[in-house]
Nucleic acid binder design. Structure first.
Lengths: 210, 210
DNA sequence: ACATCACGTTAACGCTCGCTAACACGACCG
DNA sequence: CGGTCGTGTTAGCGAGCGTTAACGTGATGT
């Protein structure tokens, strides 16, 4: 009855497999024939669903960035207490990192393979997501400077996105304990912003001094 | 007088530029002509110094892995106090992450592009480096399980290796403050292993329960 | 019954890329 | 001087890749 449904499913299936393959072997390391084979059709049949290989990557990256930002904004909006908002942000990011592992990998690995316009869009979404975090972090740790908070947020992203690296035998028993440990680590890391406020020196124009 | 010197310099120059280009645009995204152009010779002239493009990547990855491990082992060996050893490990890793940024990027991004034997070697070096950290971490935080410690170490690597992402306008003023912040964040993250010991349940055979 | 459309197929083109072949040329050395 | 070696060059091959073209085919709606 609704042909859109089947198409959407096909597209989503292709995107999921493409994400997995891109994450495993890199964007340039995967051929369209392999992506097609992964969904049961072969080679150029993909062009009935996507304009090209680049378009798949673009849709993947814009999608994950947008969903991260949307979820983050929603959690922050509905959580008045800063500490609880930070908790929610961390929990949400961990969900993405564990459940959409391939996308998280692509997200900071293959960004440069995008057309200029798409890359700008993705970067803008990423930046807004980071600033969402920075805002919450600064409300929890008001002594931290903006630059410190931003660098700390990037570092915590690196920490949370380390999930792909612990695949295999070095992983923790189940998903819950992995998530719990990552949560504790991230929260604990940010506590470094609490003590030891930055040298209260006003920011000079040229920070090259010492 | 010593012709080896010039050759070595040429090789090192090629490796340095190749690392930069690989990190910027990915292994498959860089052609041999570009690498050649970056050192003033063109295209196939590289084959007087390396067996092929793969050989360059292999030498880069084996090199960085080996140097990380060697430096880590040295610091641990000459630092009897566990807390100080952990401090030294963090400081050493930060030096690598900041000074050899492209190599750190390649290190966990292009490993799969290696021949089987090289990949096994690099993985073995990486594993030994991780275990060096795990040993120190467990002496500082004896309540943490091996699996927890290992996952935490991977996560801290992700945190420390986040340096490449804060390039541009969002970076901190100078190298020293970046290093200091990363150091505090890493140390603080690992303090999460101090409290809240894992459920002291003995490890069962199949961890799929709950 | 027939045109249309969604969704595939195979063949082939054009381009890029890693690599080899053949050659050049200055430095060193017996 | 003449041969070898180290280090480049350019030309070109062969393979792989993304993409397009041309065609097939079953479901659908009139």
């Amino acid at each position: 009855m609704n042909p859109t449904k089947a198409v959407e499913n096909r597209r989503e299936q292709i995107l999921r497999e493409a994400a997995r393959l891109f994450a495993e072997r890199g964007f340039h390391g995967v051929g369209v024939d392999e992506i097609g084979a992964a969904v049961g059709i072969s080679g150029p049949g993909l062009y009935r669903h996507f304009a090209g290989k680049d378009a798949m990557l673009a849709e993947l990256l814009v999608g994950i960035s947008g969903r991260l930002l949307a979820a983050g904004r929603m959690r922050v909006a509905e959580t008045p207490d800063p500490a609880q908002a930070l908790d929610a942000l961390i929990r949400g990011h961990i969900d993405f990192a564990i459940d959409d592992r391939p996308l998280i990998t692509l997200h900071d690995r293959e960004l440069d393979r995008l057309r200029e316009s798409d890359r700008k869009l993705v970067r803008q979404l990423q930046r807004q997501y980071v600033e969402e975090w920075v805002g919450v972090v600064r409300r929890v740790y008001p002594e931290a400077s903006v630059l410190e908070a931003r660098a700390a947020v990037h570092a915590v992203f690196g920490l949370l996105n380390s999930t792909p690296h612990l695949g295999g035998q070095s992983g923790l028993p189940d998903r819950a304990s992995t998530a719990a440990l990552l949560h504790r680590l991230a929260l604990s890391a940010l506590e470094a912003l609490e003590n030891q406020a930055p040298p209260r020196r006003p920011w000079t124009a040229h920070p090259t001094e010492r």
